[in-house]
């Protein structure tokens, strides 16, 4: 390894530290290498004597009380980022949207806020999301594909999405009620030993809603990934038809070629179309069916 590559790699691996510290460390190694070069040693030999860079980095980070584990998890994270699944990214987007609206609600109505008003905002969000689902259908109609079943499909999808979102958000408010009810039970419990049936029902609801709440996070990511998959499905469908058309076209051209009619330009175009549309459709299929894993 050359001096420049060694120093560059070392700098990259030390990036958790402050820049001034990194410069300081790099300068020490650089001086060392320069002194050794003066003695007539070869660049590669000097760097080989340093041993593995990871070992040096680990020792250096120890000097700053940064544990190996941090270094390891950091490098693992970097590798893991690439493998992050489609669903997770969609989940993150979904979370940020939801938390954005929740924050908005908190700002407008402060802390607890008026539950009725926050509910209205949530309903508006649902309506907005359902409206965006209409977009691909408009797109298809715009292209000129008109199909009476589209309206029906849209209604079904909108109903499913709306149902899921409502379920999640209503559970969210229920949980608040549940907490209040829980507190009330605790207070009453001190006074009366026998709890009424209604209260036990509420307590049951509370524990249930808390466990549901934990599932909510994964549900939100699930819903968002479902929405994106639906979008992609309507993209992939026409492309699938185009792909099939391309292949038929290619077949016809090859048949013509066999009969002595040479259309080289058209053949190349058909080949290109086939390849690109196949690639796109398989990509869509991958995401829709396997969730981009």
């Amino acid at each position: 390894m050359k001096k420049v590559t060694f120093l560059k790699e070392l700098r990259k691996k030390l990036d958790v530290l402050e820049d001034s510290e990194i410069d300081d460390i790099i300068k020490e190694y650089e001086n060392h290498i320069d002194e050794e070069l003066k003695q007539g040693k070869r660049e590669e030999d000097i760097i080989r004597e340093f041993g593995s860079i990871d070992e040096l980095v680990r020792e250096t980070l120890k000097a700053y009380k940064i544990s190996d584990r941090y270094y390891q998890t950091k490098t693992e994270q970097k590798e893991g980022e690439k493998e992050e699944t489609f669903e997770k990214t969609m989940g993150k987007i979904g979370h940020s949207i939801v938390s954005f609206f929740q924050n908005l609600g908190n700002v407008v109505f402060q802390e607890d806020g008026n539950i009725a008003l926050t509910m209205i905002i949530k309903l508006l969000c649902i309506v907005l999301m359902i409206c965006t689902l209409r977009l691909p259908f408009y797109f298809l109609e715009y292209i000129g594909i008109d199909f009476w079943l589209f309206d029906f499909c849209y209604l079904v999808i909108a109903f499913i999405v709306g149902y899921y979102l409502l379920r999640i958000w209503i559970l969210d408010t229920k949980e608040r009620h549940g907490n209040e009810a829980g507190k009330a039970i605790q207070k009453k419990g001190k006074n009366t030993i026998h709890a009424t049936e209604k209260e036990t029902d509420e307590a049951f609801l509370k524990t249930e809603s808390i466990s549901e709440r934990q599932e909510n996070k994964s549900k939100i990511s699930h819903v968002v990934s479902v929405i994106v998959r639906i979008f992609l499905f309507f993209f992939a469908l026409p492309f699938l038809l185009i792909t099939i058309g391309c292949y038929i076209f290619l077949g016809v051209l090859i048949a013509l070629w066999c009969q002595g009619i040479y259309l080289v330009g058209l053949l190349l175009i058909a080949l290109g179309c086939c390849l690109s549309s196949t690639a796109f459709t398989t990509w869509c299929y991958h995401i829709i069916v396997k969730g981009g894993k």
Binding site: I25, E28, Y29, E49, G51, L56, E59, T60
Partner: peptide, 24 residues
């Protein structure tokens, strides 16, 4: 730094690179 590494490596045969983290 370099002078120190030289003097230390006369006594103990260590990987010279790891002396700098120790100094740090």
């Amino acid at each position: 730094g370099y002078e120190l590494v030289e003097s230390v490596s006369k006594v103990v045969d260590v990987n010279e690179g790891t002396i700098y983290p120790l100094l740090k």
